[in-house]
């Protein structure tokens, strides 16, 4: 690590000021789980860190009007342990989905510190949060000197470690639609070891009509691609089919044909990552059917 100044603003205004003052030399720090790795390896060397941990407004969760506002500094642990969403509609299917995804990220010690907003801003392809937030069609509130704007998930995630955030801006809230009705979600990933990030991942959201036919859906692929990618072709194919009778194998074949993996790691190549997609979409579909 190189020397830096460590600031602990208490409010959002103050935090924004601190970040905006010397934006190119400043990094906000939420849980630090990604940032500190980059600082220790000297990949990055900001001259000042602005801690968001003390900014209460950034750690709040609230619900109502068909949406849930998740503060970016809400930790994985608070979500996995059911604390974060305790106050709001407890039976919400979308919170159940996010809880399932988050409880299985990395390991317990990382989850204690890691935050949803940190993972979103870090925007690494292997991370689960960008994929999950895309499939739930989250909106991202970005606060800057000139006010707050709202960005849709597909605009927020721009590429490997690239988001719509401009220097000096902060992610101030993640807005997750909490649609009434029969939306169901599923997520599946494959890494090398139990605690490894995904080589490939698939998230799926479906809404079914009274006859359990798919009315509307989103399928999002992660891991193998630079940013969460919608599989529009598969989505179209799925519409109108009875959810209980979808041939997972066919869907899998289509997904593997539609998605072009962009990333191969030091070890696992693109073809292998692509070959995982059928199994993953089947598992995601099963979860959506079973867990709702």
């Amino acid at each position: 690590m190189r020397p830096f100044e460590y600031l602990t603003p208490a409010g959002l205004e103050e935090a924004l000021e601190a970040v905006a003052e010397r934006p190119e030399e400043t990094a906000p720090i939420a849980g630090g789980q990604s940032l500190l790795l980059e600082l220790k390896s000297r990949e990055r060397a900001p001259a000042r860190l602005v801690s968001l941990a003390g900014v209460e407004a950034l750690g709040a969760v609230s619900g109502g009007h068909g949406e849930i506002r998740v503060g970016p500094t809400v930790t994985y642990r608070a979500i996995a342990d059911g604390e974060a969403f305790a106050a709001i509609a407890s039976r919400s299917a979308v919170t159940g989905f996010l809880t399932r995804v988050i409880a299985n990220i990395a390991d317990r010690a990382v989850r204690t510190m890691a935050t949803v907003g940190g993972a979103a801003c870090q925007a690494e392809p292997a991370f689960d949060i960008p994929v999950a937030l895309t499939v739930v069609d989250a909106g991202f509130e970005v606060a800057g000197a000139s006010g707050t704007r709202r960005v849709a998930a597909h605009e927020f995630f721009r590429g490997v470690k690239q988001t719509a955030l401009e220097q000096g801006e902060l992610l101030s809230a993640i807005v997750v639609p909490d649609p009434a009705g029969s939306w169901r979600w599923g997520f599946a990933k494959q890494g090398m070891r139990a605690h490894d990030a995904a080589l490939s991942s698939v998230a799926l959201a479906v809404r079914v009509d009274g006859e359990s036919r798919v009315e509307c859906c989103r399928i999002v692929v992660g891991g193998a691609v630079k940013r969460p990618s919608r599989a529009y072709g598969c989505e179209t194919w799925l519409i109108g089919r009875p959810i209980g009778e979808v041939e997972a194998e066919k869907l899998g074949e289509r997904l593997a044909a539609e998605v072009v993996p962009e990333l191969g790691g030091a070890r696992f190549g693109r073809e292998y990552r692509r070959s995982l997609l059928p199994a993953l979409v089947r598992r995601a579909l099963e979860e959506a059917r079973d867990e709702g």
Binding site: Y6, T8, I29, G32, Q33, L36, L37, K40, S51, A53, R77, D107, R108, A109, V110, T112, M113
Partner: peptide, 26 residues
């Protein structure tokens, strides 16, 4: 020192963390 082995685990306010990946300031 890369948050991968767990040798540095301690409890912070009762919750386990990898102390190599947390600043003392935090």
């Amino acid at each position: 020192l890369e948050a991968r082995c767990g040798c540095c685990s301690v409890l912070l306010d009762g919750q386990v963390v990898k102390s190599c990946n947390v600043l003392a300031a935090q």
